[in-house]
């Protein structure tokens, strides 16, 4: 209950903070439209040559692009800003203020900054997704909808945990921004179905940098091609990674406070 209130108040402060710079809104708008336009144009080009890409038909691919923007929106809305702020606060020592607060520090760090203009990506992604479903002429059954939302949540948890692990490395190595950059580039691979990639890359995108679970798997759930094993894998991985992230975060904090030194 108090957690929800905290999230609300932090969100409110972030909104206030960002509206101080209205120019950012237009920059983000321009960037989002450009990115979405490029993605759609790419699809148009490809499907002018073929009717199916690795078993995905055009409108299913459109749904995947929708998911890609939706999840990308979630990442740049809350995950990326909070983790970037964490790295900064470890370096300049303002993490001290967070640690003297009587509240879970991981929670405070994770919700400390919200880049609200990224809601645009989220909205556009949802729009594309709905368009794709209409074009597919597919009525999404309750089971698929539940699966989709479940997989979207699992994907978000997986990505969040992964980012937290990377950002926690800043407790050991002060400069880790570059790792986050690498993730951003790898995430772009999620724009295409994971099955298109050669085996080694598919493995890497599934288990090393878990992009597959963030985009392909939710899209599969929606287009009714998700098997039971993948579903369980996604949930299992979400729980496992979250637990690992928590452990690494705590080890990092212990290092920060010199408990192990």
């Amino acid at each position: 209950m108090n957690t929800l209130r905290l999230i609300y108040v932090f969100f409110r402060v972030s909104v206030l903070n960002e509206t101080a710079y209205r120019v950012n809104f237009f920059v983000q708008l321009f960037q989002s439209i450009l990115e979405l336009g490029t993605a759609l144009a790419g699809l148009a080009v490809i499907f002018s040559y073929t009717q199916s890409l690795g078993g995905w038909r055009p409108n299913e691919m459109l749904a995947l692009v929708g998911v890609y923007f939706l999840v990308g929106g979630i990442i740049s809305l809350v995950i990326q800003p909070g983790m970037a702020a964490l790295i900064d606060s470890v370096r300049d020592g303002t993490l001290d203020f967070t640690l003297t607060k009587p509240e879970d520090a991981q929670l405070l760090v994770s919700i400390q900054r919200v880049a609200i203009w990224s809601l645009l990506d989220l909205l556009m992604g949802t729009g594309v997704l709905i368009t794709a479903l209409v074009l597919l002429g597919k009525s999404v059954g309750l089971g698929e909808a539940v699966q989709f939302i479940g997989m979207l949540l699992a994907g978000a948890v997986i990505v969040y945990s992964f980012w937290l692990i990377l950002a926690s490395l800043s407790f050991w190595f002060v400069r880790v921004e570059n790792l986050l950059e690498i993730f951003q580039s790898m995430y772009q691979a999620g724009r295409w179905p994971i099955s298109l990639y050669p085996g080694w890359l598919r493995f890497a995108l599934t288990f090393i940098v878990p992009v597959a679970f963030a985009t392909t798997v939710p899209a599969e759930a929606l287009t009714g091609r998700l098997g039971g094993p993948t579903l369980l894998e996604a949930i299992g991985l979400a729980i496992l990674l979250f637990a690992i992230a928590r452990v690494i975060w705590r080890l990092g904090l212990r290092r920060y406070s010199g408990a192990s030194a």
Binding site: N2, R5, L6, V9, F10, R12, V13, L16, K101, P102, E103, L108
Partner: peptide, 11 residues
Amino acid sequence: DSFELNRVIYR
């Protein structure tokens, strides 16, 4: 507005 954050954190 920052004070408001502390109000919620300290309940």
